[in-house]
Design a protein around this nucleic acid. Structure first.
Length: 331
DNA sequence: TTCCGACAGTGGGGTCGCAAT
DNA sequence: ATTGCGACCCCACTATCGGAA
C-alpha cells in the first residue's frame, strides 16, 4: 500500500492540491490529427474502441460514469464488483470499457452490451467486457491533475491490482511512427499520443492526439438527401460500389464539405436526377433524390460495419480519373 | 496580425426499448 | 410483426467568434 503524497518524488509535492473528492470531473479529450510523429517528449498508447468511463470510488462505493455523466453501474455490474474488491479506495480513474473480437477491441461487439438496462438481459449477455485504466486524477484527498502524466500513470499502476477485468493501459515511449505502423497492421483503431509531462485538462486538448488508422477509397454517387436547417445545397451523398456488375448501397456521407462544395456539387447533381434508384440494398426513402451513377467520390472512413456501410465517413473530393464501373469494395 | 479553443450546427452508423401502426 | 423514434454510444467536420500568442 502506498501512501500519498509521501511516495511522490519531492519535486512534484507542490503540484498536489488537497481537496474534497469531487463527484464529477470533465474528462480530458483528444484531438484528431493526420500528422503522425515520433518524439521523445511524448508517449503512445493503443487507442481502444469502446466506451469512455470515469471510475469514482469513495468510501467503498463505486460509481461508473459515461462521458456524458450517465451512470453505468447497472450495465456493467461485474466491473462495479471488481472495483469494490480492490483494496484501494477514494480515487478517480479515467478508463475505457471494451469488448474484444479476437485480439482487437470491437465497438460492434460492445454495442450488443452497452445499451442493455434489464438485469436478465445483462446477466445472459455473452459479451465479456474489460476495463482499461489509463489515468489517475484523484486519490485520497489529493487532486492529481497538475502532476505530469507519467507520474499519474506510475501512481495508477502502483495503486491498483490489475487483474481481469481490470487492466492497465501500457504505453510506448518516443517511437510513435513505428508504433502506428504496427498498430494499423494489427487492425487496431489507432494510437493516442500523449505529451509525457502534461497535466490533466478537463477539456479537449492538443496534449492528447488521436492517430487513427483509416481507410480511404472511391465510391459512386447514387443520390443525395435534402439539406436540413441552415445547411446549404444538400445534406449527404448516398454512395455505392459495384459487385458482380451490380451497384450495392454503402450508406451516406454527410461531412467534409465546405459551403462552396455543397453548392457546387448540388448544381452538378441537377442534370443527373432520375426517379428510381440505380442501387440495391436497404435504401432510405425520406428526403432522397436519386442520381444516374456517373460521379465518383473519394471517401475516408474508419471501418465497414456489419451491414456493409461506412463508419465515420467523410468526403474528401471528386475523382474524375475513375470510371464508375471500376469502383469496387476494396477492404 | 495570425492562430487556436470553444461552441453550435450539420452530417454519419449502430443498439435497445417502447409506442404506434 | 414491423416500423418509427428517442436516447445513448461511437464519431468528423465547418463556420464563427473572441482571446491568446
Amino acid at each position: 500500500m502506498i501512501n500519498l503524497p509521501a511516495d511522490i518524488s519531492e519535486k512534484f509535492r507542490d503540484k498536489l492540491n488537497k481537496k474534497k473528492q469531487p463527484d464529477w470531473i470533465s474528462p480530458m479529450l483528444a484531438k484528431l490529427t493526420h500528422d503522425v510523429f515520433s518524439d521523445a517528449e511524448w508517449i503512445f498508447e493503443r487507442k481502444l474502441d469502446g466506451e469512455r468511463c470515469l471510475v469514482f470510488k469513495k468510501n467503498g462505493k463505486v460509481e461508473l460514469m459515461s462521458r456524458n455523466q450517465k451512470e453505468l453501474n447497472n450495465t456493467y455490474p461485474e466491473l462495479v464488483r471488481a472495483f469494490e474488491e480492490q483494496d484501494t479506495d477514494n480515487f478517480i480513474a479515467d478508463t475505457e470499457i471494451v469488448a474484444f473480437d479476437g485480439n482487437v477491441t470491437s465497438f460492434r461487439e460492445l454495442q450488443k452490451r452497452m445499451h442493455l438496462k434489464k438485469k436478465e438481459a445483462i446477466e445472459s449477455s455473452k459479451v465479456k467486457v474489460f476495463i482499461y485504466l489509463f489515468d489517475l486524477i484523484y486519490h485520497d484527498g489529493y487532486e492529481l491533475d497538475k502532476l505530469p502524466l507519467t507520474e499519474r500513470k506510475k501512481l495508477l499502476r502502483e495503486l491498483l491490482d490489475f487483474e481481469d477485468p481490470i487492466r492497465f493501459t501500457p504505453h510506448r515511449n518516443e517511437k510513435g511512427k513505428e508504433f502506428y505502423q504496427e498498430a494499423c497492421k494489427k487492425d487496431w483503431e489507432g494510437l493516442i499520443a500523449k505529451k509525457a509531462n502534461s497535466t490533466y485538462a478537463h477539456s479537449r486538448s492538443s496534449n492528447w492526439l488521436k492517430f487513427k488508422c483509416e481507410n480511404q477509397q472511391e465510391f459512386v454517387i447514387v443520390g443525395y438527401t435534402k439539406p436540413q436547417g441552415t445547411r446549404k445545397g444538400f445534406g449527404a451523398i448516398l454512395i455505392g460500389f459495384y459487385k458482380d456488375d451490380k451497384l450495392k448501397y454503402a450508406g451516406k456521407v454527410g461531412t467534409g464539405y465546405t459551403d462552396e462544395m455543397l453548392e457546387d456539387l448540388h448544381s452538378r447533381f441537377q442534370k443527373l436526377e432520375i426517379d428510381e434508384p440505380a442501387v440495391s440494398g436497404r435504401l432510405p426513402s425520406k428526403n432522397v433524390h436519386w442520381l444516374k451513377p456517373k460521379m465518383v467520390a473519394e471517401v475516408a472512413f474508419t471501418e465497414w460495419t456489419s451491414t456493409n456501410k461506412l463508419r465515420h465517413p467523410r468526403y474528401l473530393g471528386l475523382r474524375r480519373d475513375k470510371k464508375v464501373k471500376d469502383v469496387l469494395k476494396e477492404s
